[in-house]
């Protein structure tokens, strides 16, 4: 990573009573990245995002967002970040437009209405803008919540499980929108427990039990995946699990007279992530 990171997290700890939600988190996010936080429920993704937006104060460690401390310098920083919480957190008795305009008005003295309409256009909900939120479906409420985070055109977006509970078609539409936002220069931190969404990110941090197990390009993670090689000879299969099949396959085939067929099952990203999480859990036990 060249230049100062947009987000820097150093040895951050946060506990709620006896539960250690963040157990020494270290990571960096560069400008313009779509950075994923992937992990099972209880991994610490939401707690980390809330710490990054200044909603909670870690007990230990240091967080820097856009060169500022998100808690201490919150009044300077909040106009530059947008936050979509895990639950929609909307005023159900008011319309989508009024909700978005209200949250935009915190930053925009005069143009809140105009920006609210633009945000609702972006999430393709302009035709329902004037309907009360309680009349909208769960997926539509998620979209309104996203519009609330976008309306004031922040530099940084923090989206906590934005695609939870929505159908695959809408999920694809969301990620298309996220890619457009990133292409426009925004830095995004997106949490998900859907491993398949990790490939949409430039880099991902795999989290478990309040720690980051690894943070890298998901395509590089895929390259680290194991493969199961099945070599069929005379109706019988010999199965071997290897770390790098491009290296091990020639060795496995060497010296064999006749091979009926070769099957290679590569670990998916989900398999790799689950294996890492299970290995970590076993080490901690």
């Amino acid at each position: 990573m060249t230049g100062s990171p947009t987000i820097s997290v150093r040895s951050v700890h946060k506990s709620f009573g006896t539960v250690e939600a963040l157990a020494g988190v270290d990571l960096e996010v560069a400008e313009g990245e779509i950075f994923g936080l992937v992990g099972p429920n209880g991994a610490g993704k939401t707690t980390l995002i809330r710490a990054l937006v200044g909603a909670l104060r870690p007990e230990d460690g240091e967080i820097t967002v856009l060169g500022l401390n998100p808690r201490r310098d919150r009044y300077e920083i909040r106009g530059r970040l947008g936050y979509m919480p895990q639950t929609p957190a909307l005023y159900e008795d008011l319309s989508a437009f009024v909700n978005v305009r209200f949250f935009a008005a915190a930053h925009l003295r005069n143009r809140a209405a105009e920006k609210a309409r633009a945000a609702l256009d972006f999430i393709d909900l302009a035709d329902r803008a004037d309907d009360p939120v309680h009349t909208l479906s769960g997926g539509m409420k998620q979209r309104v919540s996203l519009a609330c985070a976008l309306a004031h055109e922040p530099d940084l977006l923090f989206l906590d499980e934005p695609t939870a509970g929505i159908d695959p078609q809408l999920r694809e539409a969301f990620w298309t929108g996220f890619r457009r936002l990133a292409a426009g220069g925004r830095t995004m931190v997106v949490s998900t427990h859907q491993m398949s969404e990790a490939l949409e990110c430039d880099r991902v941090a795999i989290m478990r039990a309040g720690r980051v197990l690894v943070a890298e390009d998901p395509r590089a993670l895929l390259g680290r995946g194991r493969a199961t090689i099945r070599v069929w000879q005379e109706g019988r299969a010999e199965e071997t699990v290897v770390d790098d099949y491009s290296v091990d396959l020639p060795r496995l085939l060497a010296g064999r007279d006749r091979v009926d067929r070769v099957e290679i099952d590569r670990e998916t990203l989900e398999d790799i992530v689950l294996r890492m999480i299970d290995d970590d859990a076993a080490r901690s036990a």
Binding site: R78, F103, C148
Partner: peptide
Amino acid sequence: VGGTMERMFINGYR
């Protein structure tokens, strides 16, 4: 309880 208080704060309301 609804989360809108926290959302207000994070959006910049004081």
